[in-house]
């Protein structure tokens, strides 16, 4: 990133300085160091990195196959494979270079108590923020079960809020009826930010075997195929969140600067990149420079000036986007 771009691309997110609006997404980049294997890739190209979903105890995760390409995207059912929060804090965080970027823990669990326990463990570490994953579609108990029910979401957020003073980002599921209402409840319970959206549930079938391809039968759909859904959800959550000054990491299918700009215009202050790394591990560089070029072209001096600047057509009122 050159110095000019760096000035333009700087964003403040929940009080954290990000060098770029790009956030590398949980589950796509392991525990922060994996992509640095790629020559030319640097963690300092991105504003923050969300670590893999972490639970109280270590988890082996689901049986293979765990990933499968589908038109315009992919399915995954990893099942939150992770070594447990204690191990992450004691053995992984000390090896991360916090001078390169911000690191965000992705907290998962099966019970409210587990979310709280994991959050406490991270609270007592140098992690920069907590992302609350109440939307994981790939584990039997917990995850999405919390995220799809506004009462449950509110309970988890309130409990975790009491357990940490670090910035708290709640990751919302698209697999629910009224995401805006859920967002409202999470704000009441003390969330500082949102991540919108996690994957959509899906399935792929092997017609010869007449069996699902994924070991877990179903998985989460990510990639360009979900971008239109993610944009609408980001817009809907922004309608609620902006009144409280609560920022959003918009995500779902971002593969280039134009995609990222769409999310920012829809209301995202930062933009997640996950699946696109699998296509092109060096994609962040071009997203950064593409965003910077756009800002220059539109004579904007910061990303903040662009966030939520979407002008809806008059036929549709801001908080009542019709389905049909």
């Amino acid at each position: 990133m050159n110095a000019d771009d760096r000035d333009l691309l700087h964003v403040e997110f929940c009080g954290m300085p990000f060098d770029s609006p790009i956030v590398l997404l949980s589950g796509c980049v392991g525990f922060g160091e994996e992509y640095t294997r790629v020559a030319g890739f640097s963690n300092s190209e991105v504003g923050a990195i969300c670590l893999k979903g972490t639970t109280g105890e270590n988890r082996l995760g689901n049986q293979p196959h765990r990933v499968y390409e589908t038109p315009g995207g992919m399915l995954n059912s990893i099942g939150l494979q992770n070594p447990g929060a204690r191990y992450v804090v004691d053995n992984i965080l000390p090896k991360l270079d916090f001078s390169e970027t911000r690191f965000i823990a992705n907290v998962s669990g099966s019970t409210v108590e587990e979310y709280v326990e994991v959050t406490r463990i991270f609270d007592d570490s140098n992690i920069d923020a907590i992302e609350l994953n109440i939307s994981c579609p790939n584990v039997k108990e917990g995850g999405a079960a919390f995220g799809n029910d506004p009462d449950m979401s509110a309970r988890v957020v309130a409990a975790v809020r009491a357990a940490t003073r670090k910035p708290l980002i709640t990751k919302l599921s698209p697999n629910q009826t009224d995401i805006a209402e859920n967002a409202r409840r999470c704000i009441e319970s003390g969330t500082d930010g949102f991540a919108v959206i996690n994957t959509l549930m899906g399935m792929a079938i092997d017609i010869e075997q007449r069996a699902p391809i994924l070991g877990n039968n179903q998985g989460g759909l990510s990639g360009p195929a979900i971008k239109p859904v993610a944009l609408l959800k980001t817009h809907q959550v922004h309608q609620v969140a902006r009144k409280h000054g609560i920022p959003i990491i918009g995500q779902g299918g971002v593969t280039n600067a134009n995609d990222a700009l769409e999310f920012i215009i829809a209301g995202a202050s930062a933009v997640g990149v996950g699946t696109a790394l699998f296509y092109d591990p060096l994609v962040c560089e071009s997203i950064n420079s593409g965003i910077a070029d756009y800002l220059r072209r539109h004579q904007l001096s910061s990303i903040a000036q662009l966030v939520g600047t979407l002008e809806l057509n008059s036929a549709i009122s801001a908080c009542d986007v019709c389905v049909e």
Partner: peptide, 13 residues
């Protein structure tokens, strides 16, 4: 089956 091939996704275990 693989997605990232750099150790990031735990898809290929």
């Amino acid at each position: 089956f693989m997605a990232c091939a750099v150790g990031g996704c735990a898809g290929c275990v």
